[in-house]
Amino acid sequence: MRWDGLFEDIEARWADLGWQGTVAEAAELTRAEWAGITLADRLRGARGAELRVHLVGGQALHVRVRTVGRTWFGVDLTGGGSAVVRTAAVAAVEGSLGAAVPEPAGVAGEIGLAAVLRGVARSRAAVTVVGLRGDVIVEGTVDRVGADHLDIARHARDEARRRGAVRGVLVVPFSAVGLVRGAEGLE
């Protein structure tokens, strides 16, 4: 009997079993890791990338990802303008989302949608608020932002917010908002 051959064969089988175990373990770790990745993590990994974002209402936006929060992301719209999109309004994303970047450690409280919209209010820029189904809820200027809603002074998007141009104030809960975009991005 050739002992050397027998031992080599046994060692090869053990090595193969060990490798198979390692492959299975790696696959399980990968599944576990993916289980903790959020859409926001994947969008964060796609900063600067051009994507096609399909909204729940059927609209599709061609965008470049700029910044990402837990429940929203800021984009530049192809063709001009910018928008803040609530992830709750997203049905699907087309494009390269292969990388995932977790939220930076030590971030003391995420910048929420309310904080972003307060920045929009400070800019006094005309906006269009689009609902979850893709319908335009209101055009105007963000006057105030509460914890879960915003007040929009209604006026034509090509007019400045002046007392004579305002046709009322509409209070919109965040839960109804799909995205808020600058009026300049609408044609």
Results as ranks from 00 to 15, higher is better:
A40S: 15
E33H: 14
V68N: 09
W72T: 04
V53W: 05
V56K: 00
R64L: 11
D16Y: 10
R44F: 06
A26W: 03
V75S: 02
V23E: 15
G58V: 06
F73R: 01
E25C: 03
V75H: 01
R52H: 02
L51S: 00
T78D: 14
G36V: 05
A49M: 02
R31Q: 14
D16C: 03
L51K: 01
L51Y: 00
H54Y: 02
E28R: 14
W19L: 10
R70Y: 09
T71R: 08
G69V: 10
T22S: 14
G74M: 13
G79P: 06
E33R: 15
G58K: 08
T38N: 14
V23R: 15
E25F: 03
G57W: 04
L39G: 13
A49F: 09
A60W: 07
A49V: 06
F73E: 00
G79W: 09
W34M: 09
G79A: 07
G79M: 10
R31Y: 09
W72A: 11
L77P: 00
V56Y: 02
A24K: 11
G18V: 01
G81S: 08
A26E: 15
A35H: 15
L39D: 12
L77K: 07
G74I: 13
A40Y: 15
E33N: 06
G36K: 11
Q59T: 07
G36F: 13
T30R: 13
R64P: 05
D76C: 02
T22A: 12
R64C: 05
G69T: 13
G57H: 08
T22R: 13
V63P: 01
W34T: 03
D16M: 08
A24F: 07
V56H: 06
G79D: 08
D41L: 10
L55Y: 00
V75K: 01
E33V: 14
G74C: 13
E28N: 12
V65D: 00
A32K: 10
V68Y: 14
V75D: 05
T30Y: 03
A40F: 15
Q59Y: 07
G57K: 06
I37V: 15
R31A: 14
V23S: 11
E50C: 04
T38M: 10
D76K: 03
T38C: 12
D76I: 01
V63T: 05
Q20I: 00
A40C: 12
R42N: 08
G18S: 14
L43A: 11
L61R: 09
A27Y: 00
R47G: 05
R31C: 10
T78L: 11
G80E: 05
D76P: 01
R66W: 11
W34R: 12
R70I: 11
R64T: 10
T30N: 07
L43T: 11
L51M: 02
T22Y: 06
L43N: 12
V65P: 01
L29H: 09
F73A: 03
A32N: 12
T22Q: 13
V68T: 06
G80I: 08
Q59I: 04
R31E: 14
T38G: 12
G57F: 02
A27W: 00
A40R: 11
G79C: 11
V63W: 03
W34Y: 09
